[in-house]
Design a binder for these strands. Structure first.
Lengths: 343, 343
DNA sequence: TGTTTCGATCAAACCGGTTTAGTAAACCAA
DNA sequence: TTGGTTTACTAAACCGGTTTGATCGAAACA
C-alpha cells in the first residue's frame, strides 16, 4: 500500500518560484497575476500532478462541497423502490460536474431527525434533500432552525422556506382514473400508500377528487405500506368490495395485487383492471403488462441538485416545475366485464 | 436562514479556562488531564453545545472520516436492482455508529475509474468498496496504485491485495439446479448475467458445474443483461431449446421470463419450472410465487464496512466469510410434465 | 535542603488551502 | 521631479482542530 504523498500548494509555489498566495490566486483565476506567472504556475501544478485538497479547502472556506441525503426507510422497502437509485443518479449527474459529493445516510425511521442533525453538526454537508415528505413534516422546521439549505421533493403541506421540486402525483392518478372511467368502470378502488406520507395521502386525495370529477361515487380505499406484502393483503381486502378496477399507488403493490387477483379467479384485465404508479422497469414485463404512471425521478434528482447548489451559493431559488407524470397504457386495463351491471 | 455560529474548541477552552490543547486532550480521553479539569471541560463543551468540526479534524489528522462507493451502472438498471439499497443500508448501519459517512458516486460505466480517482485525489474518502467486480477488474490495480484501502464484494479472479467479503453465488445456483434435478428435470436452461461481470460468469459456471454434478448434459445458456427486458428476450430465445426448467441469474429476469413463458402457453410450474436469484421482495408475491435464492446484501454491507474501517485503521484484515445463500422454494418449481420423455 | 521526577498545562506549530494587509516597482500626469 | 495610482506579488493570518516541546509547581527522592 504505497502512500504517494500528494503535492501541496506549497510545492507548486516552490516549483513556480512564487508564494502560496499567488498560486492560489492563479489557480482560481483571480485577477492580479500576470499572464506570464499564471502560466508558469499552471504548468508547475500540472507537472506535479497537483489537485486541491478538499479537506483544506473545506476548512478554509467553511464549505463541505457536499450535499446530503437522509433515507429513513426500512432497508427492505428501500430495495424494492426504484425511486432512490434513479433519483440519486440524477443528483450525481449534476453534482459530479461541479466537484460536489453526495453524502448518504440511511437511518431507522425514528432517527431521521438525528440524521440530519448529525450531518449539520459535523459540518459534513452544505445542504440537503428532503424526500418522502410527511404530513406536517417536522424536518422543515428543524432544517430551518439549523440554517441548513434544503430542497424538498414536492411542496410540503405546511409553510416552508425552502424551494421545492414541484413533483405532483395528482395528474397521474387523475389520468389513471379518467382512463378507467373512460373504459366504462364505475366501481374503482384504490390501494393507497401510508397516509402519513405526503405522496401517500395526496395520491389518495387525487383519487377521491378524480372519482368525483368523473361523476362517480367515492370508491373503497385501503391503506397499505407500499410493499409487495402490503399490496397483496390490501388487494385481498379490497376485492371483497367488488370493484372492477383498482388504482394502486405504486407498481410494487400493483404487481403483487395482480397476482392475488388472478389467484382469486379475477382475470386481469377481463374481470379486473389494474393500474400502477412509477412505471418501473418490470411494469412492461409482467403478465398482463401493467398500465402505470410514468414518473421521472432521474430528472427530479438533476433539478433538485441544481436548485440546491444554487441555493447554497446564496442565490434565491424558485420552486422548480417538472413535467407532469404520464399514464402509460398497457394490457392490465380494459373495459369492465359486461355482466357487471351499473347501478 | 439563521446561521448559528457553532462554538469552536477555542470557545470551550475559554469557558473552561484552559488552553485549546488541553481541551483537545480532554475530549479525546487522553491521559495527562486531571479528572477535575476534564470534567470542567466536558461540562463547558456540553453547555456550549459543542460538536467537533469534521472539516477541521479531517485536515489536521488527514482523514476524511468517510468511505466511498462508486456505482457504475445505468440508472434504470440500478433502480431495478434491490442489491444496492440493502447493501448501502448495511454499510450505514456500521458507519453511523462510528461517525463515518458514506460518499456515493454514480457515474457512467466508462467513467468508473475516473470516479475512484476523483474520490482519491480530492481526499474525500479513506477507503472504498468495490462492487460489481468484473473479470480481470482493472480497479484492483488502480486502487492498489492509489494506495487506497478497499474491500471487494466477492473475491476477484485475479490477485488482489484487498480483503474480500466472501460472497459466493455458487451454492445458491447449485441448490437451484439440484432442486430441479431432484424434481426430475433433465433439460435445464440458464439465463445468465453479462459474462464480463464476475457474478454473471460465476453463476454461469456454477450452473454448468451443477448440471455436470447432477449427471446431466450441458444445458442451453443465454446471456442477458439483468434487466426485465433482457430477461424477457432471453426467455423467448431459450424456450426454443425446449427446456423444462430455467435457472435465472436474478429475480427481475425471472419474473419477466415467467410472464413470457405463460404468454407463450408454457404454464408455470406445470410445463416449465423457473428459479430466480436475490429473493426480492416481490418474489413471494408474483404468480406463481418464485422459487429463488436468498442473499443477504444487508449483512454484506455491514461486514464490508467493518472490514474497511478496520483496514483504514491500519489493521490487517482477512477475507470475511458470510453464510451461504439459501434456496427458497416456492410455487414456480415442480416436476416436469410427464409427456416430456427423457432421452 | 537541593535535586529529580512527574503530572498538568500551555504556547506554538501544523494540516493545506484562502484571504487580507502591505510593499516594491512600474506607470502616469502635472 | 514629485506624488498618486496600478500592478504584481509576498508575508502572515486564518479556518478549527491535533500534536509537540517547553514550562511550572508539587511530590518524591537523596
Amino acid at each position: 500500500m504505497t502512500r504517494p504523498d500528494r503535492p501541496t500548494i506549497r510545492d507548486v509555489a516552490a516549483a513556480a518560484g512564487v508564494s502560496k498566495g499567488t498560486v492560489s490566486f492563479a489557480l482560481n483565476g483571480r485577477p492580479g497575476v500576470s499572464e506570464d506567472t499564471r502560466e508558469r504556475i499552471l504548468a508547475a501544478a500540472r507537472d506535479l500532478g497537483w489537485t486541491p485538497s478538499t479537506k483544506a479547502r473545506a476548512l478554509s472556506v467553511s464549505r463541505a462541497f457536499a450535499v446530503g441525503l437522509v433515507l429513513a426507510r426500512e432497508p427492505e422497502l428501500l430495495g424494492a423502490d426504484p425511486f432512490f437509485p434513479a433519483f440519486i443518479a440524477g443528483v450525481e449527474r449534476t453534482l459530479s460536474d461541479r466537484g460536489q459529493a453526495l453524502v448518504l445516510q440511511v437511518v431507522p425511521e425514528a432517527e431521521e431527525e438525528a440524521g440530519y442533525r448529525r450531518l449539520a453538526d459535523a459540518g459534513r454537508v452544505d445542504g440537503v434533500f428532503v424526500l418522502d415528505l410527511r404530513v406536517a413534516d417536522p424536518r422543515i422546521a428543524l432544517l430551518a432552525e439549523l440554517g441548513m439549505p434544503a430542497v424538498t421533493i414536492a411542496r410540503p403541506d405546511g409553510p416552508s422556506p425552502f424551494p421545492a421540486v414541484l413533483v405532483d402525483d395528482r395528474p397521474g392518478i387523475a389520468a389513471a382514473v379518467s382512463h378507467l372511467a373512460g373504459l366504462g368502470h364505475r366501481h374503482i378502488a384504490h390501494v393507497a400508500g401510508p397516509a402519513h406520507f405526503l405522496h401517500g395521502s395526496r395520491r389518495r386525495r387525487a383519487f377521491d377528487d378524480a372519482l368525483d370529477e368523473a361523476g362517480l361515487p367515492p370508491g373503497p380505499v385501503v391503506e397499505a405500506d407500499f410493499s409487495a406484502a402490503g399490496g397483496a393483503a390490501a388487494t385481498r381486502e379490497i376485492l371483497a368490495a367488488g370493484p372492477t378496477a383498482i388504482v394502486y399507488s405504486n407498481d410494487l403493490m400493483a404487481i403483487a395485487g395482480l397476482s392475488v387477483a388472478v389467484e382469486l379467479g379475477r382475470a386481469v384485465p377481463a374481470r379486473l383492471s389494474v393500474t400502477g404508479f412509477d412505471n418501473t422497469d418490470l411494469a412492461g414485463y409482467v403478465s398482463p403488462a401493467l398500465t402505470s404512471v410514468r414518473t421521472d425521478p432521474y430528472l427530479w434528482g438533476r433539478k433538485a441538485a441544481e436548485a440546491l447548489l444554487e441555493l447554497i451559493d446564496g442565490g434565491t431559488v424558485d420552486d422548480v416545475p417538472v413535467p407532469a407524470a404520464q399514464l402509460v397504457i398497457r394490457a392490465s386495463t380494459a373495459p369492465p366485464p359486461p355482466e357487471v351491471r351499473t347501478e
